[in-house]
């Protein structure tokens, strides 16, 4: 048998590197951002002015800044627009893939689901820019086939928002599908077969048999996608740069503007800290309200 000391050493050996790495790349930058947020830290002026302590001034400025509030509001409307669509589409795809038969096609579909997720965000934005181009974009060409007049997607506030949302749905619905599919494969076969003998309505099976196995996945999707959308930057920036006007200026695009155009690191850090707190609150909320352990 191993002694207590040996056990402890083994634990330290296994966990130590992970904890150290986390400290270096996760905790330290976070603490540094927090320190920044309490100082006046305008990068080009640091040599002349230093970084004087300003207390909670940056936080007050952020919370009373109408542009910040508007982009935060816009980010939540974006979240509420894309997330339900992604969940419904993802669940639909997962249920179809869960059906027996056509196994080769199913394998192919499952593989191709990974492609959008593996595409770099910036590239997704550029693809979007081409697809939704008002003059030679595929989307307008497709609408033209049905006699519908083309739209200047990226030059109109509402359409630009819709176009960015469409690209996000394209990229992340497959992720939801794969998570749900994993949940569905966890349903014990005998339980599912027994249920199929009881009823032919798929909604009833979904509600009473499959749903409990989908809940942990759904919680994960909610947490990950919320965090993702709160820090969604590359694709929006390459697609619309937050425009036209401020129609697609999500919160991360706004923070980037403050952090790397104005170079006000103090203010940008305060904004980032607020977003972090929001993400944590939302995640706790999701877990408390939605998450249930699977009872077998």
């Amino acid at each position: 048998m191993y002694s207590r000391r040996e056990k402890r050493l083994a634990l330290l050996g296994f966990l130590g590197p992970a904890v150290l790495t986390l400290l270096a790349i996760g905790i330290y930058p976070l603490l540094f951002a927090f320190w920044n947020s309490l100082h006046r830290f305008i990068l080009p002026r640091v040599p002349r002015e230093g970084t004087p302590w300003v207390g909670i001034d940056n936080y007050v400025a952020v919370l009373t800044d109408p542009s910040f509030q508007q982009s935060l509001g816009r980010t939540f409307s974006f979240l509420l627009t894309v997330l339900p669509i992604q969940i419904v589409l993802g669940l639909g795809i997962a249920l179809l893939l869960h059906q027996p038969g056509a196994s080769l096609l199913r394998v192919l579909t499952r593989l191709s689901l990974v492609v959008p997720m593996a595409t770099t965000y910036a590239v997704v934005g550029l693809i979007g820019r081409l697809l939704f181009n008002g003059d030679f974009g595929v989307v307008n060409w497709f609408l033209g086939l049905f006699g519908i007049a083309g739209v200047n997607w990226l030059a109109h506030p509402t359409f630009a928002f819709a176009a960015v949302a469409a690209m996000d749905v394209w990229q992340w619905s497959p992720f939801c599908a794969l998570v749900f599919l994993a949940g569905l494969t966890m349903v014990p076969v005998e339980v599912e077969e027994a249920a199929q003998l009881e009823t032919t309505r798929w909604t009833a099976i979904l509600r009473h048999v499959q749903l409990p196995f989908l809940i942990p996945g759904l919680t994960a999707i909610l947490i990950l996608r919320t965090a993702d959308i709160l820090k969604m930057f590359d694709s929006v920036f390459t697609m619309t740069r937050g425009g036209p006007g401020a129609a697609t200026e999500l919160i991360s695009v706004y923070i980037q503007r403050i952090g790397f155009r104005v170079f006000d690191q103090g203010m940008a850090s305060a904004q980032a800290v607020i977003i972090l707190v929001l993400t944590i609150i939302l995640s706790r909320l999701y877990i408390r309200v939605i998450y249930r352990e699977i009872e077998q």
């Binding site: 008002g134 030059a155 425009g243 036209p244 006007g245």
Partner: peptide, 8 residues
């Protein structure tokens, strides 16, 4: 007298 999507 400009194209419609000029702001983009």
């Amino acid at each position: 007298y400009m194209p419609q999507g000029i702001v983009d």
